[in-house]
Structures are given as structure tokens and as C-alpha cells.
Amino acid sequence: MGWQERDYDSIPGTYVFDGKRANPAYALNKLLYTLNEEHCRLEFAADPEAYCDKLGVKGEFKKAVLEEDFLGMLRMGANIYFMAKMAIPRGTSVQDAGAAFQGITTEEFIANLQKRAEGLTDKIKSRGDYWNG
């Protein structure tokens, strides 16, 4: 028996972090989790390949880590919060990652976020019972 289909699998452009991602990407996420510790960060930075071997990160997963291919890592099941521990200190914010997913620049990604909140203060004013500055 393989992984069962879930209703959230039909949400477009979305990779819900469940068993079918957490299971195959376990070693990858474990490597990312160790980066909470300063001594692990130093060990990883000194020899990324040896660190992957030590943590059992192999094949395509290892390739993505060594190439700092954050997009590829996410698609293979890296959890976004765990991946942030590797990406953010290397200059890739979650907004950079979001932009890369859509093939747009980070500036465009941020501008789109702003657009989604356009007219907000008027909307809040019309509701009446919200603090509005």
C-alpha cells in the first residue's frame, strides 16, 4: 500500500507537510534540525559533504544540500521551518524562497504581499469596531 490521497492534496502549489513528505525526508530534516546548535553549524560549514554522510543524507537529498538548492529541498520534503535554519544564515529568507517558487523576484513577491492588503485601513474603518490608529 502506498500513500493515500488527502483532500488537501488538491490545493494547488501547496505541499502539506505530512507523512508522505516527513517520512522520506527524515534524514534531511534531521540535518537541518541540528543547525540549532552552534557546534553543528560549524561542523557542517567546515565540511558539508562529510556532515551529510554523518547524518545519513544521501542521493538527491545530499545533492540539494551541497548545492544549497532550497527550492529542491522543499520539493523533496524539507519542512519550511527546519529549512529556514540553513537558508536564513546563508542569505535566503522565506520571502526569497517564496519568490523562487514562483519564478519572480523577491521585490515582486513583497509587492504582491502589499497588494493583498490594499484598502485595508478603509475596510477596517467600515467595520467600525476595530482599532485603526
Binding site: I11, P12, T14, A97, F101, F109, A117
Partner: peptide
């Protein structure tokens, strides 16, 4: 935060 759909905000 993740996927091609990153950046969702629904005010």
C-alpha cells in the same frame, strides 16, 4: 510560506 502558492494573505 511554501510552494508556488506562497504569499497568500486573505484580509
Amino acid at each position: 510560506l511554501q510552494g508556488e502558492r506562497a504569499g497568500i494573505i486573505d484580509t
